[in-house]
Amino acid sequence: MANTQAPFKQVDVTRAVKGAVAAGLSVGRVEIDRSGKIVVVMANNATSEINEWDEQ
């Protein structure tokens, strides 16, 4: 059986999580599908900045 290349690497997940944290978001979990697509899901207690345009 031939070795196949991994669809993602640990460094890819680390970069995605560090990017979300650097943006001020609270990471709840990370989902990775079979193709290697990485989805960072924010925690429920994540606070976002409220824009004056949002308050109407």
Rank of each mutant, 00 (worst) to 15 (best):
M1E: 08
M1I: 08
A2T: 09
A2R: 05
A2K: 06
N3V: 10
T4L: 15
Q5K: 13
Q5T: 07
Q5L: 12
Q5P: 07
A6G: 02
P7H: 02
P7T: 12
P7M: 01
F8D: 03
K9G: 08
K9L: 08
Q10Y: 11
V11W: 06
D12G: 01
D12W: 04
V13C: 00
V17E: 00
V17G: 06
K18W: 00
K18S: 09
G19K: 01
G19T: 03
G19Q: 01
A20C: 03
A20R: 00
V21E: 07
V21D: 03
A22D: 11
A22P: 00
G24I: 02
G24C: 06
G24Q: 03
S26W: 03
V27T: 04
R29H: 12
R29Q: 14
R29A: 13
R29D: 12
V30E: 04
V30F: 02
E31K: 00
E31S: 07
I32K: 05
I32T: 08
D33G: 00
R34N: 11
S35K: 15
G36C: 01
K37I: 11
I38A: 02
V39A: 10
V39M: 09
V40M: 05
V41I: 11
N44I: 01
N44E: 10
N45K: 07
N45D: 14
A46T: 13
A46Y: 08
A46F: 08
T47H: 11
T47Y: 04
T47R: 15
S48N: 10
S48Y: 12
S48I: 12
S48E: 10
E49A: 08
E49L: 07
I50N: 03
I50D: 00
I50M: 09
N51S: 13
N51F: 07
N51A: 06
E52K: 09
E52P: 08
E52S: 08
W53H: 15
W53I: 06
W53M: 10
W53N: 13
D54R: 05
E55I: 15
Q56W: 09
Q56D: 14
Q56T: 12
